[in-house]
């Protein structure tokens, strides 16, 4: 319990630091928000008025606190371009990005877990070497490159899957999934390596434990030893990595949404970057940080739940 409280405290501080720094970055910008709202031909008096109205003349800390209070009340500000509420813009797009990331993570796990087990079974054996080399190749292939190749083969050559586009779930499950397969695969093909290596390393250690030797001495089959005895105790790091990967996945999703034309939160952010819509950028960054913090807290919870020893060790450590 004390361990968890400590974590919550730390994560809250992290959240404050992140939001304050982005707030600072956005507000020290040359030609601040007032000029953006007022437009090119606004007079100095008009600018001053907008500044007064937005409270831009107050010290930055006060403004930050005010922004934070409004944030807590659900007011994330409005887009400088469309006047749309940032919160509703984000919330509209979250499920789409979430679907992409979940699909990608499931695919990555589906590749990584069997590969990791196979690889750890005989380190330096032919299977291990093959899988490790494949991992090297995949890691050297950033998502946007994989995406180009996948589009080239599956969309243009074979014509199996659409190259871009998005269909809402209301159009049917398959119609919705079909354009998501390539983007998710592009993301998964990069991510699985990290998961596989983590599982492999921990599994190799686990396989040297005495109880594994005992299980084998009893005459238990290799498959059963690997799956029933070794997998669960080897999956702690995997769970942690899954949490840490959220930031990476978000980063990867941004670029893939752009390539495949998926209207997710990454596309929103990139569009905001291209159009310099600062309030939207700020909202997106805050949202990413919030997601990261929450996911990491959940990972800590899962970790403590999976392995009771952690609770004890960390509480005293």
């Amino acid at each position: 319990m004390r361990y968890l409280l400590g974590r919550v405290q730390r994560l809250l501080i992290v959240l404050l630091v992140v939001t304050f720094s982005t707030f600072l970055l956005v507000s020290v910008l040359p030609g601040d928000v007032a000029y953006q709202i007022g437009g090119m031909d606004a007079s100095e008096a008009e600018i001053a008025e907008i500044r007064e109205e937005l409270g831009l003349n107050q010290p930055v800390v006060l403004r930050y606190l005010e922004w934070l209070t409004r944030l807590a009340q659900g007011d994330w500000g409005r887009s400088l371009l469309t006047g749309e509420s940032v919160w509703s813009m984000i919330i509209e797009r979250v499920p789409i990005s979430l679907e992409l990331m979940l699909l990608a993570q499931v695919m990555a796990l589906a590749i990584a877990v069997p590969a990791g087990i196979l690889s750890a079974w005989r380190p330096n054996g032919w299977a291990d070497r093959f899988i490790t080399s494949l991992g090297f190749a995949c890691v050297s292939m950033p998502g946007f490159m994989t995406a180009i190749l996948l589009i080239y083969f599956f969309s243009l050559h074979l014509g199996w899957l659409p190259a871009t586009g998005y269909e809402p779930l209301s159009a049917g499950l398959w119609a919705n999934l079909k354009p998501m397969i390539l983007p998710a695969l592009s993301l998964a093909l990069v991510e699985w390596t990290v998961l596989m290596r983590t599982l492999r390393a921990e599994m190799i250690t686990t396989l040297q434990e005495n109880y594994i030797s005992l299980a084998r001495a009893k005459g238990m089959s290799t498959t059963r030893v690997l799956l029933a005895h070794a997998l669960r105790p080897s999956s702690f790091s995997l769970v942690t990595i899954l949490g840490l990967q959220v930031a990476r996945l978000l980063g990867g999703a941004i670029i893939l949404e752009q390539i495949y034309g998926i209207p997710g939160i990454g596309r929103l952010l990139i569009h905001a970057v291209y159009t310099r819509d600062l309030i939207v950028i700020q909202g997106c960054v805050t949202f990413f940080a919030l997601t990261y913090v929450i996911v990491n807290f959940l990972v800590d919870l899962a970790y403590a739940w999976l392995d009771p020893r952690v609770r004890e060790a960390r509480a005293h450590g």
Partner: peptide
């Protein structure tokens, strides 16, 4: 430690996007 955690809480690409705007 807190500074590093905060730095890690934002996807790297987002930080880079932010810098490229600024």
């Amino acid at each position: 430690g807190i500074a590093i955690d905060s730095w890690l809480a934002i996807p790297g690409l987002v930080i880079l996007l932010l810098f490229s705007v600024l």
